[in-house]
Nucleic acid binder design. Structure first.
Lengths: 146, 146
DNA sequence: ATACATGCAAAACATTTGCATAAGA
DNA sequence: TCTTATGCAAATGTTTTGCATGTAT
């Protein structure tokens, strides 16, 4: 898909500006992140990475993610009871639909949250930094399967 | 405060119905939870509990929390990078304002999310279970202090 | 009396860190 | 060449679990 290739090039450029070396492992991680629509976990990324780099480690994946977080180029969705999940295509806060059965995370068509986070923050005197809006439920496929 | 006492009695009643024993430790944990406006962590609860029960353990706190979660009588706000935080007064999903500097968690006056989670879930064919709406920023006190 | 709760210690588990080796620039 | 990245192993920190002892009912 053209979109994910464009995003890949953009990320490579940003890494270069940032003074990072473009290693084959990093390129592969970026490719996995940008071509992924399903918010992979670090483990997911690692599994895919091992296809090309059988001796790679989870530490490499985590170090790359840490770097991308620092650059605000990946969105981290934290879960204490499972692995964190990552979105390298939309690295800004946005609404997520999360299936509690199969673990799928998708972005709904529209979300109309608009500037609610800003309004609420402002009203309470907070300086807005970020927000998180997750909707948890059972996805259509899991409903059909039960 | 009358509200928190009423909530406490309600919880004790629910525990009894559930077939749980009302131990002094459990009563104290409930008291800490219901009288707390600042979304304590398990550690916070433990520290307060130790005042009355110097030999108590974190395991006791966690086991009690697990029981209350099972009964849907406590809301757990999960954070991977810090401790989870708990709300025993409003055990249903609601909007949170979270200060990234001092860690305070408060509930905004009004939130006008209304039935947005339900609408979005429905539109995507999901069966709604729960949601999470967190707004992260810097609270007024921390802004003044910098 | 007896089933359930407590509290200690050890386990679990994702993520982070230290460090020697490897390899981009 | 020389600095940065990799990948192994060990550490971290919160939450969970096992089990012997204690206790509410």
């Amino acid at each position: 898909m053209a979109d994910s290739e464009k995003r890949l090039e953009q990320l490579v450029e940003r890494l270069r500006e940032y003074g990072c070396r473009i290693t084959p492992q990093r390129l592969a991680i970026l490719r996995i992140l940008t071509s992924s629509e399903n918010h992979p976990s670090a483990e997911d990324i690692y599994e895919q990475l091992r296809v090309q780099f059988p001796t790679t480690s989870l530490a490499t994946v985590y170090k790359m993610i840490a770097m991308l977080k620092e650059m605000n180029e990946v969105l981290e969705l934290e879960f204490r009871d499972r692995s964190n999940r990552y979105d390298g295509n939309r690295p800004y806060p946005h609404t997520h639909l999360i299936c509690l059965r199969c673990g799928t995370i998708q972005d709904p068509e529209q979300s109309e949250l608009e500037n609610l986070p800003r309004q609420i923050a402002l009203r309470a005197g907070y300086q807005l930094v970020s927000h998180r809006f997750d909707i948890y439920g059972i996805c259509p496929a899991c409903q059909a399967a039960e």
